[in-house]
């Protein structure tokens, strides 16, 4: 019997995205540039995080017209973002036929206590996390893919590095705990016990884990891959740079050949202006998107 929307099918699409780059796009033209450069998927948005940051106010799900046009423009998977806890935006995105929903801290949260019940959907979800407990809470709610939060729209990779290192180091710690200490570990990190046990056994997250938030160069992408992530999200880093097509292609090559400094040197040449960054340490607490989510 044929079954749709199963855990295997939801998690499976993320497996197919591994070793690839998912790029933020705001128009069908940008989506085509991304596809042509070798993106394994695109994220359809009304504004990239850097512009959301600059505009201020409330950031919401993109206009369905924009999402539809991007769905029609490319053959690769299309993702779209809903606000944290906004399950109706998620319902709308599912009905539009998007391939993955990002319940994202880049948009203004719609619920300050609860995330979307992602198990209730046929379409799979990806969620951001800064540490293992947060990642496992999201997986417990049904997320079939995890990404670091980083600090979106800054072009500063430091927070993505912090979050990836944190998750990896917490996994290594769990692996070394005797069985009887796992329940207390689960309690302390606020994570479902069964998932804590699974992570201790697997030595990795039970779903695909991408890096996101502040990745702007091929070297940034390779750094995150060497730190152990499965693939890369690039938000503002491509279409806020001087030569988006060339940079996009270079980041794709760097994600494949992340362990080969010669290739990395080659693809890093003459990329033009990178996005103008914001140094994290100059960012006021209230402007940090990564604090959103619970």
């Amino acid at each position: 019997m044929a079954e749709q929307g199963t855990w295997k099918v939801k998690k499976g699409l993320a497996e197919m995205l591994k070793g690839g780059v998912i790029m933020d796009v705001t128009t069908p033209e940008q989506a085509k540039i991304a596809e042509e450069a070798g993106a394994c998927a695109v994220m359809a948005l009304e504004r990239v995080p850097a512009d959301i940051r600059a505009a201020g106010g409330v950031a919401r799900m993109a206009d369905p017209t924009i999402i539809k046009r991007i769905l029609d423009a490319v053959t690769i998977p299309v993702m779209a973002k809903c606000r944290i806890g906004h399950f109706v935006e998620a319902q709308i995105l599912e009905s539009l036929g998007v391939d993955y929903i990002d319940e994202s801290e880049v948009l203004t949260p719609a619920d300050e206590q609860f995330h979307v019940d992602k198990n209730a959907f046929k379409v799979p979800f990806v969620c951001g996390a800064r540490n293992l407990g947060e990642a496992l809470r999201r997986i417990g709610e049904g997320a079939a893919m995890i990404r670091t939060k980083g600090e979106p729209g800054t072009g500063d990779v430091v927070e993505a590095v912090r979050h990836m290192r944190m998750v990896m180091s917490e996994i290594r710690k769990l692996q070394n705990l005797p069985e009887e200490e796992l329940m207390t570990a689960a309690k302390e990190m606020g994570a479902p016990y069964n998932l804590v046990v699974e992570v201790a056994k697997l030595g990795r997250l039970p779903v695909v884990n991408f890096a996101a938030g502040g990745i702007a160069t091929p070297a940034d992408a390779a750094l995150m891959m060497q730190l152990g992530c499965d693939g890369i999200f690039v938000g503002s880093g491509i279409f806020k740079s001087g030569d988006p097509a060339k940079r996009a292609k270079a980041i794709v090559a760097a994600t494949t050949h992340y362990n080969d400094p010669q290739v990395l040197a080659e693809v890093s040449k003459d990329l033009g202006e990178p996005m103008v960054g914001i140094n994290i340490s100059t960012l006021a607490d209230v402007d940090r998107m990564q604090e959103r989510g619970w």
Binding site: A2, E3, G5, V9, L13, E94, V98
Partner: peptide, 30 residues
Amino acid sequence: NAFGRQVDSFETDLQIEGLGPEPFRAVFIR
């Protein structure tokens, strides 16, 4: 993408030539 987008992805039991009568649980993703 012949079977549709991700929401149309599915798993099903396949009869495969040469693998005997036992069906193969096959996962189809886009």
